[in-house]
Amino acid sequence: MPCLGVLGGMGPAATVDFMSKLVALTPASHDQEHLPVLVASLPQIPDRSAAILGQGKDPLPALLEGLRLLNQAGVGLITIPCATSHHWYDNLSAQSKAPILHIARATAQRIAQGGHAMLLATRGTIASGFFRDELIAQGMTVEIPDPETEQITVDDCIRLVKEGRAPSANQLMERLLERADARGIRTFILGCTELPLAARGIARDGLTLIDSTLELARQAVEHGLRQGWNRQPIVDVPMIDHPG
């Protein structure tokens, strides 16, 4: 049965947040109207940002193994609720039978043409440039945090969410947005899937927070509903071969 595949665990809380948004975005009055989803939550995949910066192990083999599991299970579309992993998007897509949604592309496509925004993301995502390139292609001018001040706060927000300390991350995010707002930045791209959890509940007049997790989930739901995956009975789920 075709369904949505999720390559997650990067990190676990971000994957749960993505799943929650999938459910919230799906128009359903009972269980059977929701989309079927297979999740491979693999938190042992090496750190993506560290690898891009030349400070850690290459995560591509582990990412490809996760894709293999999902493709073997027969999923019809794959999402990866980890923005930094999209540095390897071309490599992953080339070896996946199922198409893979691109989180930065999904985010950029929801933004009105033009405008100015600050991209909040991991240092790896910023160094890679893929997210910024997608936003610029949409006509935006993109600012990145100062690496010695603002980016340290972004790093801390991501780390605190991964540690299960979202309230502390929320306080840091509030201060970061307040300082940036004071110098005229009113739109922020939450370009790491931990950051929507750090920004949860923050609301300031005139401030726009664009949630990349939400936009990825929105495109996934739209695709699944167009395919009618929520209307197909479970008839045969392929068995997954295990090594050894």
Rank of each mutant, 00 (worst) to 15 (best):
I185T: 10
G184A: 10
A199D: 06
L7S: 03
V23P: 04
P238C: 10
R123V: 04
F131C: 11
T149H: 13
D47P: 04
A180M: 14
E148M: 15
A83P: 08
F131Y: 15
T79L: 10
G139K: 07
D236A: 15
N230R: 05
L22H: 08
M19R: 12
R175V: 11
S212I: 03
R204S: 11
T122S: 09
T122H: 02
P2Q: 13
K162D: 10
T208Q: 15
W229H: 06
L197F: 00
E150K: 07
P2H: 11
L67H: 09
L119Q: 02
R200G: 09
N91Y: 12
H86D: 03
T153N: 15
V23H: 11
Q171W: 13
L101E: 00
L225F: 12
F130G: 01
F188I: 04
L35T: 03
R179L: 13
A203L: 14
Q232M: 15
S96W: 02
C3W: 11
P61D: 06
I189L: 05
L25F: 10
T26W: 10
V161E: 05
Q44K: 15
A198D: 02
A106Y: 01
R48N: 06
A73H: 10
G206M: 07
A166C: 14
A73Q: 08
L22I: 10
V237Q: 12
E65S: 14
A40R: 08
R105T: 10
H30T: 08
I234M: 14
A198N: 02
L64H: 04
I240W: 12
Q44H: 15
P59V: 11
L160H: 02
G5C: 06
A182Q: 15
A24W: 12
K162F: 05
Q138F: 05
R110Q: 09
L67P: 01
C157Q: 07
Q232G: 14
D47F: 01
P12T: 13
I52H: 08
R68N: 09
Q44Y: 15
V75W: 05
R204N: 08
V6H: 02
R183E: 14
H102F: 02
G76M: 04
G184I: 04
G9E: 06
R110A: 03
V39P: 00
P46I: 08
V142L: 10
H102M: 04
V154I: 11
D58M: 10
L135W: 01
T187L: 06
A127Y: 04
A121H: 00
P145G: 11
I158F: 02
Q227K: 12
I144W: 03
L135N: 03
G5E: 03
